[in-house]
């Protein structure tokens, strides 16, 4: 159980006798509960409180926000568990934390301290450039990044910490476009398509039947204004991650609140106009055509 310090795979000590591990419905269920919400990156318990007050539906506990990771460089790792625990104490909303790609021990630690969601994130430095974490070994659910339609992605990768929405828009368009292509495909063609995108056939088939991803789809990377958030929602995302966009701006509390409102009322331009007024300075932003910018989204598939 949480806090005992012992990490056991396949859910030893599950609450009900009927299920030894967390069923898929419970894992996906939490993501479904987060739909239509905003998940904010926070680095201190105080920021977590600001996010909660603003109406964030979850917080992502980090050591540094992506914008700082960009600015300072170095190896970015999982946050200090102590910090994550403090943030968890401070708020009642779900707390997520990032683990490096392929670093399953970091994920085990996060599971042990009772985090609600693990983000296997390309923003942190890679631990394994070929393999991802085997999520079936864990009872906690995972989020992971995607650029195209593949496997079971949760989060289209924008360029984190840039304040530039272009990459996120491109990836969401790419995912949605692929789904539209897939929906018009003959069933026989799906085999080849699944092979081409290296995704399990049954998931691809399920996506085709549903006409949408069989998982919850959150936009991330570069969301800095309420309009950015509403844009991602109108493109068909289920919710939005906001990283550096809130706490790197002039008035975090106000901006956080405005983005939360924009996600709920994403299709109502009048409300969007109202909440976008007088938010103070937005984060500076980075133009991605600049050669010096490292592209995090290219780090893994």
């Amino acid at each position: 159980m949480a806090g005992s310090g012992v990490v056991t795979v396949y859910g030893n000590g599950a609450i009900t006798e009927t299920t030894k591990q967390s069923p898929f419905s419970v894992k996906v269920g939490l993501a479904q509960m987060l739909r239509g919400g905003v998940i904010m990156d926070v680095v201190t318990p105080e920021q977590a409180r600001v996010a909660e007050e603003a109406g964030a539906c979850a917080v992502m506990a980090l050591e540094r926000v992506p914008a700082d990771i960009r600015a300072q460089g170095g190896v970015a790792r999982m946050s200090d568990p102590q910090l994550i625990k403090e943030i968890k104490q401070a708020v009642t909303i779900p707390v997520m934390a990032k683990a490096r790609i392929g670093h399953f021990v970091e994920a085990q630690i996060l599971e042990a301290i009772g985090i609600d969601y693990v983000d296997e994130s390309e923003v942190l430095t890679l631990a394994d450039d070929e393999n991802h974490i085997n999520k079936h070994n864990f009872r906690i659910p995972f989020v992971c990044g995607c650029r195209h339609l593949r496997g079971a992605p949760h989060r289209p990768k924008g360029e984190a910490g840039t304040g530039n929405i272009i990459e996120a828009v491109r990836h969401v368009r790419s995912v949605m476009g692929d789904i539209r292509v897939l929906r018009n495909m003959d069933d026989d063609e799906v085999f080849t398509f699944a092979k081409k995108i290296q995704a399990p056939y049954d998931l691809v088939m399920q996506t085709k039947q549903l006409g949408r991803l069989p998982v919850v789809h959150f936009a991330a990377g570069g969301v800095a204004t309420p309009a950015d958030a509403a844009l991602m929602m109108q493109l068909g995302c289920d919710g939005v991650f906001v990283g550096s966009g809130v706490f790197k701006s002039g008035d975090p509390a106000r901006r956080a609140r405005a983005i939360v409102q924009a996600v709920t009322h994403y299709s109502d331009p009048e409300v969007l106009a109202e909440v976008s007024c007088g938010l103070g300075e937005a984060m500076v932003g980075i133009n991605l055509n600049d050669d010096k910018v490292e592209r995090y989204a290219n780090r893994s598939e």
């Binding site: 009900t16 968890k88 009642t92």
Partner: peptide, 15 residues
């Protein structure tokens, strides 16, 4: 009682 059963790791399914 909010979050009576605890956080996500204690989430469960039951008949």
């Amino acid at each position: 009682h909010r979050n009576f059963f605890g956080s996500q790791i204690q989430s469960f399914e039951a008949e």
